[in-house]
Design a protein around this nucleic acid. Structure first.
Length: 262
DNA sequence: AACTGCTTCAACCGCTGCACG
DNA sequence: GCGTGCAGCGGTTGAAGCAGT
């Protein structure tokens, strides 16, 4: 007897999310919290499987998400953590507040991999690329985590990072992400485009942010918010906490404008 | 302007780990 | 210990946008 599929595939919608679906999901979660994902679509009136809802929420709609390209410091963190943890994107993401595993994975595959190769480093092993190629050790990422830090990355300094061709990737500070709706041309891709309408439609009158979010800025280099709050970085994977995790500055583009009215 | 190839990233798929009976 | 159901994770896909010709 096979396992029951995670959802009844018949009649369930797939593909990009619409504004209406986003609104339903956000409203439901803000009202009821994140309950059983399997039951959520039915309760929220969505024709999606729970898995899809969870993914949409965690990767795109979550209010604590920081949008925009990874900063120089974040990239350094990702590279460092990847050297220790391998492709354990969720573990890596847990050290980067407001970033999702999917986002980091995509950024790694599209940007960092290329940069490392350009720097003459093997993105897989974090060792200098050496010839002949056959000498390369194809380490299992899980094995990497059990070994000590790769010396190459261990000895990497911020000066090295300065050489890290960041000129290719314009840095976007969180405060720069917040844009007036009149000037903002929403990303035209798939659901992001659809969701732009959400700006004016969404209202969460009963929901308030814990701080004055319009005036706080996050400095990635020190993990500090300019209103004095700071992130706490733990030694192990699980002990990270971020008191400011719900600042609207980290909202998806589509939702920011609504939040600033609160 | 039209075409083509490349890049990006949201979303999906399938697997794994964990909790529970 | 075993089976089941669920959430979460990582790899992959494909549509849309972009750059080059």
């Amino acid at each position: 007897m096979g396992r029951k599929p995670c959802c009844d595939k018949v009649g369930l919608k797939k593909g990009p999310w619409t504004t209406d679906e986003d609104q339903k999901l956000i409203s439901f979660i803000l009202t009821n919290g994140q309950c059983c994902w399997r039951a959520l679509p039915k309760l929220a009136g969505l024709l999606r499987c729970g898995k899809s809802c969870r993914l949409r929420w965690t990767n795109y709609l979550r209010p604590d998400l920081k949008r925009g390209l990874l900063s120089e410091y974040e990239e350094k963190m990702v590279i460092d953590l990847h050297a220790q943890l391998g492709n354990r994107w969720s573990k890596i993401a847990s050290h980067l507040p407001g970033r999702t595993d999917n986002e980091i994975k995509n950024h790694w595959n599209t940007h960092i991999k290329k940069k490392l190769k350009k720097m003459g480093m093997d993105p897989l092993t974090h060792n200098p690329l050496s010839e002949p190629q056959e000498q390369k050790i194809d380490k299992n990422p899980k094995d990497l985590s059990q070994t000590s830090l790769n010396p190459t990355m261990e000895t990497m300094t911020m000066n090295d990072i300065d050489d890290f061709c960041t000129d290719e990737v314009p840095l976007i500070e969180p405060h720069e992400i917040l844009v007036p709706v009149t000037d903002y041309a929403p990303p035209s891709t798939s659901s992001s485009c659809d969701s732009s309408k959400l700006l004016k439609e969404l209202e969460f009158p009963d929901f308030e942010w814990p701080i004055d979010c319009n005036t706080s800025r996050y400095d990635d280099n020190v993990g500090l918010w300019d209103d004095g709050e700071f992130n706490v970085w733990g030694d192990d994977d699980e002990s990270f906490s971020s008191p400011q995790i719900q600042c609207p500055l980290r909202m998806p583009f589509d939702l920011q404008y609504s939040w600033t009215y609160i």
